[in-house]
C-alpha cells in the first residue's frame, strides 16, 4: 500500500516536472524546436513498455497539470491525450504483434498525427467555430512534420536506452547444435 502511494507520488512529481518543461522551457524555443512534445513521447513510451494502466495514470497527472498551467479550456490536454492513448492502445493490441523499434516508430507516428488532428479539431470547436481551422493551413502540416520527426528521433533514443538497461526486449535466437 505504502509502496503504491510512493509510486503514485513519484509519478505525479515526474509528471509535474515534464509539464513544467513542456509549458515553459520548450515553448520558448524558436521555430521547429518548440514542436518537441515530451508529454506525448512519454505517454507513448509508458503505454508501449508499461501498459495501459500506467499510461492512463500518466495522462491523468500530466494532463491535469498542463490544463492548470494552460489558458486553453480546462480538460483540453486530458481529452487530447486520452484520445491519442485510446487510438495507440487499440493499434498496439490488435495490429502489432511484437515490441520492436519499428512497432514503436509506427505508434509514435500514429500518436503524433492523431494528436495534431484531435487538438486542432478541439481548438476549432471550442473557439466557437470562429477561429481558423488549422488543418487547412500550411503551418499545421509543418508543425505536424516537425513534431513527428522529433518524436521519432527521441523515440529511437529512449527505446535504445531502455532496451540496453532493461534487457527485456533484446532479440535472441534458438540455435541447434551442429547446424550452421
Amino acid at each position: 500500500m505504502i509502496k503504491s502511494i510512493g509510486q503514485l507520488f513519484f509519478l505525479a512529481l515526474s509528471c509535474l516536472a515534464i509539464a513544467i518543461l513542456q509549458f515553459s522551457f520548450i515553448s520558448s524555443f524558436p521555430g521547429a524546436f518548440n514542436q518537441i512534445n515530451i508529454g506525448l513521447i512519454a505517454m507513448v513510451f509508458i503505454l508501449f513498455f508499461f501498459g495501459i494502466k500506467s499510461a492512463i495514470l500518466f495522462i491523468f497527472f500530466f494532463g491535469s497539470f498542463m490544463d492548470i498551467f494552460s489558458f486553453q479550456f480546462f480538460s483540453f490536454h486530458l481529452l487530447v491525450l486520452a484520445t491519442v492513448s485510446l487510438v495507440v492502445y487499440l493499434i498496439l493490441e490488435n495490429w502489432l504483434t511484437n515490441k520492436s523499434l519499428y512497432s514503436f516508430w509506427v505508434l509514435c507516428l500514429i500518436a503524433s498525427v492523431t494528436y495534431g488532428f484531435i487538438s486542432s479539431i478541439l481548438l476549432f470547436v471550442f473557439s466557437g467555430l470562429g477561429g481558423g481551422f488549422s488543418i487547412f493551413s500550411l503551418y499545421f502540416w509543418q508543425s505536424l512534420l516537425y513534431q513527428s520527426l522529433w518524436l521519432l528521433l527521441v523515440a529511437s533514443l529512449f527505446f535504445n536506452i531502455f532496451v540496453s538497461l532493461a534487457k527485456r526486449f533484446k532479440p535472441f535466437f534458438l540455435e541447434k547444435k551442429g547446424v550452421i
Binding site: 509549458f23 515553459s24 515553448s27 520558448s28 518548440n34 498551467f69 494552460s70 489558458f71 486553453q72 486542432s120 481548438l123 473557439s127 470562429g130 477561429g131 481558423g132 481551422f133 488549422s134 487547412f136 493551413s137 503551418y139 499545421f140 509543418q142 508543425s143
Partner: peptide, 12 residues
C-alpha cells in the same frame, strides 16, 4: 512564463 498557441488564428 510560457508561449501558447493563439486561440483564434491558425498561422502559428
Amino acid at each position: 512564463m510560457a508561449k501558447e498557441a493563439s486561440f483564434s488564428v491558425s498561422d502559428g
